[in-house]
């Protein structure tokens, strides 16, 4: 029963992340909202799989997948946001500060 609750919470977090991907104004904000919410949502689903199976082949695989997913998602987010800035996408007109512009030149 606890497994089903944890999996439902994970799907709810995924829903927030995808709404953020659709609604926010520019690519930096979209990346930020989507990475946070979807990564924690999928980690939560995998934790639910562990709670459902206990310590067995499937449960241990789910536990191993959690740190793997975590590090790969955050490092991919750093690489994507840096590549996006060097590609030359402007920040949205609601942004108020940009210290990185001087450092790149």
């Amino acid at each position: 029963m606890a497994a089903i609750i944890v999996i439902s919470i994970g799907v709810l977090f995924n829903l927030f992340g995808c709404i953020g991907l659709l609604r926010l104004p520019d690519v930096y904000n979209r990346l930020q909202a989507a990475t946070k919410c979807v990564t924690l949502g999928c980690c939560s689903i995998l934790l639910g799989v562990f709670l459902h199976n206990g310590i067995s082949a499937a449960g241990i695989k789910a536990i191993i997948a959690i740190p793997l997913l975590f590090f790969s998602a955050t490092v991919a987010a750093h690489a994507l946001v840096r590549g996006t800035y060097h590609f030359g996408v402007k920040m949205s007109d609601r942004s108020i500060k940009d210290d990185y512009k001087d450092a790149v030149k």
């Binding site: 995924n14 992340g17 991907l21 989507a34 990475t35 979807v38 990564t39 949502g41 999928c42 997913l69």
Partner: peptide
């Protein structure tokens, strides 16, 4: 960005 997020959702 959307392709990256799609990959994570497939794991779920």
């Amino acid at each position: 960005v959307a392709i990256d997020i799609f990959g994570i959702l497939v794991v779920g």
